[in-house]
Each structure stands twice: as C-alpha cells, then as structure tokens.
C-alpha cells in the first residue's frame, strides 16, 4: 500500500464527481452532518447504526455488511472514497472496516470534510438515488484487527501505540475533550505503549503529513517497525487513523487496530495500567 493507492485529493474528487465507478461515502461522528449537506453524489454511512451490531459490542456480520453496501448501491469493483468530519476519524474507521471485509479499492479524501469546507468547495443537500446492487463481502480479515488477549500479550513485547491526546494517555482526561468526561473506565494507558497522538500525523487542515515526516514521527517515538504493532485509542476510530497511516500510507505490515481500545481495556479486571506521561514497564 502507498499514499497513491489509499488517498485522493479534493481536486481528484471534484474531477470524479460524475464518474460512475467512484462512490463517495460520508461517515461522521456527528451522524447528522451529512443530512445538513455533503459532497454532491455522496451517500451516508451512519457508524453508530450501520457499522455496529444492534445487540453485542461488535461489527455487523458479513451478511449485514453485504446488505448495507448493496443498499447503498456499491459494487465490489467500485472505487469507494470515504470522507468525514473530525479529520476523517470515522471515515478512517470505515476504511479499516471496509478492508476487514475485503473491499478492494477504498480511498480516503485527504483532509476530509474539513478541507472541503475550508476551501469553500460545493456542498449540497440533495440525496442521490443509487440503484441497489448485490454486494459480496469477503470473510473478515483478522490480520488487521486486534482483540484484548493479544493486546495484553503485546505489553513489553510488541509495539503498542496509544494515539489519544497526552492528557488522556496520562490519565488527566478520560475522553477526548469535545465529549463529557464522566465515563466508567479507569484513567491511564496500557503499560509500555508509546503515546503518538493521531493529530501529529495530520496537518492543521486535516491532510496527512509527508511520508518522511510520518516515518520520523513513529521512529522517534520508539516504534520498532521490525515488530508487530497494535494501535488503540478510546473506541477505535482515532486509532484507525493511525492504522491507516502506518499500513496504508507507509506500507508497514503487521499493523492491527484494537477497536475495543480504552473503553474495553480500561474496564478489564486484573490487567496492568500505567498512569502519567511515561510508558511504564511490563
């Protein structure tokens, strides 16, 4: 994978607005953002209702994912371009999710909804009608998704990258600061995890930094590219952004996203937790 195969620019999107093989998909934390306006032709995926099992805390299953994409009029051979607010957090989460289910050609709009708005590009409120398709997903790719037992096993052995803000990592905040702080998890981070906030991988306008800057960022934080890497945050969407940087832009293999993240780990009984700005010991 590379920047060329995983990202598209706002100019590229404008030039492909009427390309029938390109499907724009908006995914936002604020699930009402699309309803206000969106890029012309884009369809909406609601992360909280479309991408979550209605009962258990897990993905929708393969058949549900196929029904979702079929209903959106997406074909297996379409180029799917994801974008959204929050510097593409939830779009990156959806990108990772589409990859878990094996969609071949997925891209992120570099800069997401923010750069589109800051450059005053056209947004519309008309919802497109796309003919439903029969979508066939692949079996879930577990090589890019981490579960709690392998996270615990990775302490002191593999790269753990905590991509939350320094105050969340240290335990001074319990959630990203645009959300209320009352949550049930204990504060802190997984011992030995490096703190590389996702935001360091992005410019202020939401676009990704250059390959050289990105490689230096993780290298200087002590991430050993010769080892396996697990990225986590609070609920797995900011860590999708970092997973995207490491695996899709920089092409580093053996990178997993831990979507259980701190809301799971910080609730586990009997696991080690570190407090403060230092990684801590295994």
């Amino acid at each position: 994978m590379s920047r060329e195969s995983s990202l598209v620019s706002a100019d590229w999107v404008e030039q492909n607005l009427d390309n029938p093989k390109v499907v724009l998909v908006e995914v936002d934390e604020d699930t009402a953002a699309y309803d206000k306006n969106h890029i012309r032709g884009a369809v909406k995926v609601n992360w909280s209702t479309d991408l979550r099992d209605p009962v258990r805390r897990d993905f929708v299953n393969k058949e549900q994912f196929e029904a979702l994409l079929g209903g959106l009029g997406i074909s297996d051979d379409d180029t799917v371009v994801l974008y959204g607010g929050n510097n593409n957090w939830f779009a990156a989460y959806a990108y990772w999710y589409f990859k878990v289910y094996g969609h071949e050609d997925v891209r992120l709009l570099d800069g997401g909804r923010k750069i589109w708005e800051l450059e005053s590009r056209q947004l519309v409120d008309a919802v497109p009608s796309r003919e439903a398709t029969t979508y066939t997903a692949k079996n879930p790719d577990s090589s890019i998704r981490a579960f709690r037992d392998e996270v615990v096993a990775a302490i002191g052995a593999q790269n753990l990258v905590d991509v939350r803000s320094p105050d969340e990592y240290a335990g001074r905040l319990l959630a990203p600061a645009h959300l209320p702080q009352e949550v049930s998890q204990v504060p802190g981070h997984i011992p030995t995890a490096a703190n590389v906030p996702w935001s360091k991988a992005a410019n202020d306008d939401g676009t990704f930094r250059s390959d050289d800057e990105l490689r230096a960022l993780y290298g200087e934080a002590g991430v050993d590219f010769g080892k396996d890497t697990i990225a986590y945050c609070r609920i797995g969407e900011r860590s999708s952004h970092t997973w995207f940087v490491l695996r899709e832009i920089l092409g580093i293999q053996n990178v997993k996203n831990y979507d259980g993240s701190w809301t799971e780990y910080g609730s586990l009984v009997g696991v080690p937790v570190a407090i403060g700005d230092e990684p801590g010991t295994a």
């Binding site: 607010g85 510097n87 923010k114 800051l118 803000s165 320094p166 990203p176 600061a177 906030p197 202020d204």
Partner: peptide, 16 residues
C-alpha cells in the same frame, strides 16, 4: 473549526 491545544501546544480536540 476550533481546536483545543493543551499547555504544551499539543492538539487535544477539535469541533466545528
């Protein structure tokens, strides 16, 4: 877009 930076200047959150 309003970004909240911590005392060291590090990004903490952003909202439109």
């Amino acid at each position: 877009y309003v970004r909240l930076l911590d005392a060291t200047g590090e990004f903490t959150a952003e909202v439109p």
